[in-house]
Each structure stands twice: as C-alpha cells, then as structure tokens.
Amino acid sequence: MSEPSTYSVLVEVRLRPGIADPQGATIERALPALGFEGVRSVRSGKAFRLEVDAPSADDAARRAGELAHRLLANPVIEESTVTVLA
C-alpha cells in the first residue's frame, strides 16, 4: 500500500456544447476592438485548484471528478474536466 499523498488538482468547468454562452460571446465581440483579429469560439468557464489527499493520482482524480459533478458543475448545463497537476 502506498502512503496517502497530497495531489494538486485542476478542475475546469464550462458550459456544455450547444448551451448559449453570453459571456463568451460578449468577450469574442470585444476582441476585434482591441486589435485581436481571428479569434473565434470563445467559451467562458471557471477553474478551481484543489489539494486532495489520496492514495494515488487516479484516486485523487476520481474524487475531484465526483465533487465536480456534485457541486462545482451543474450537470444540466455544464461539464467538467479534471487534471492532476502534481
């Protein structure tokens, strides 16, 4: 058995494809005015950094995925991805 260690985890939450993103659309419309041409498909979201005590990186990712599904994202309109950073 490996000792539990602390894993740094990144959870990204964004709107599901097909769900309108008024914030992303507004940012996209603002970009040409600032001289940023050729930028498309801006989608806004949220990012969370967590430190998770777990026996393995896989376990840390699984637990972060569960809490993302239960709290950080609203599965009706949002989806999330979990990345174990270290």
Partner: peptide, 17 residues
C-alpha cells in the same frame, strides 16, 4: 429548486448580460 433537482432545467445569465 432547479439546483436541488426539484424542478428541471437551469437559470443562466440573461441574454445580453
């Protein structure tokens, strides 16, 4: 009530923010 799953759907930011 929507977050609690007692009603379907979700309430998003208004169109036009």
């Amino acid at each position: 009530l929507t977050e609690a799953g007692l009603l379907p759907g979700a309430l998003q930011k208004n169109r036009g923010l």
